[in-house]
Write a protein that binds this DNA or RNA. Sequence first.
RNA 1: GCCGAGGUACUCUAACGGUAAGGGACUGGUCUCGAAAACCAGCGGUCGCAAGGCCUUAGGAGUUCAAGUCUCCUCCUCGGCGCCA
Length: 418
Amino acid sequence: MLELKFVRNNPDAVRDALVKRNMGTEHLDRLIGLDKEWRQCLVEGDRLKQTRNRVTQEVARLKKEKKDAAAQIDEMRSINARIKEIDDRIRDIESGMQEILLNIPNIPSSTTPVGRDENDNPVIRVVGEPRKFGFPVKPHWEIAENLDIIDFQRAAKISGQGFAVYKGMGAKLERALISFMLDVHDRQGYVEVFPPVLMTEKAMIGTGQLPKFKEDMYACTDGFYLAPTAEVPVTNLYMDEYLEKLPVFHTAYTACFRREAGKHGQDTRGIIRQHQFNKVELVKFVRPETSYDELEKLTKDAEEILQLLKIPYRVISLCTGDLGFSAAKTYDIEAWVPAQGKYREISSCSNFESFQARRANIRYRTPEGPQFVHTLNGSGLAVGRTVVAVLENYQREDGSVEIPEVLRPYLHGATEIR
RNA sequence: GCCGAGGUACUCUAACGGUAAGGGACUGGUCUCGAAAACCAGCGGUCGCAAGGCCUUAGGAGUUCAAGUCUCCUCCUCGGCGCCA
């Protein structure tokens, strides 16, 4: 969320941001109008309240002196009625402004490339070289079903489309990847946490999933939402707190839940797009002046997983038209998927600046007073998509799959799946 | 789920129904060679160029001229009991 004062004082900057994101500006115009009316109401209401406070004091004084205060009490009745009217109007305006503010996206960083859509995302670097296969490559779902390590049929029976049951070496591989990723990030200095995934509405608002993206979330009874990413529980750990020592780095494994509304027909086969998937996340809370350096480091920390697994990938910078709602700058890491002959997103690393911290009220102290921290996060990595990358990049002609060396200690030394 | 006790600002802690007092921590200043102590000041939000004002006692509704205080509802925390993997 942007600060109302910021919008009031920099309407052109906000307008510019909306235009670069290909979004309309009519809500912004409405907000500016409401703000003006709001301040007018405040002035009138405050003046009446000042009168009320003064008269009320008189009443107290008169009563103490055992004098009659009927005239003053009578005067108050009409003033109170008018105050109520104005207060009601102020409340309406405030909820209107709040709703608009919650739906205005973050201002893109000046280093975020300007562009219309995903076709305008510049490639920052390409690492590793796609392997040359001397045989026709199979898509991961074919490899997995042939090896009997992922069961889509039975998953559909118990949960419907968009789910997978991992079995045998498939289940072990998923578990090995989670442990491997957490161990690497632990070594990189991230403190592991293992949080709940049932979230309150307030937490979902804190990181920006609500109110704008309600359709993409699973809502439970009792007012809970299923976290779509560990970003939600981990960032909100420090909701309404002062962080006494910065920076704070966390890594967390959680299951993630996404409705993928409006994504019918995309990646319907395989495990690239699932309603429930596993992810290891990286989250940072830092001082504003360091947040862009920290974004570079966080991205490299996520990349290290792919380097260790020896999977080719590239890093792109999301342009303004493709940038997520809460982010000021985002790097996507895309892993090479041989059967598709292209790079596919496996991690998204973002700097939110103070956008989430303002919503979730996460601050630190400075000599000039409380300041909002900057929050960052990135996948390190999406586990299911890493399984895709491993199966496809390490497949052999006979249908078996070699296990990357770094994972073997997590699989009792096994070297292949067959 | 039941019973009880609570929720005041970063923290702790006051306030006959009369308009939020104070300590600690923190920041700045005086003093000092320097530090500590002591003393002074600041230390919730918001409107305003300012003077100044308004709001703020977990959240909401009500009673009242006036609510931290009285009534009702909700939430959360801490005990105890029950149930449960």
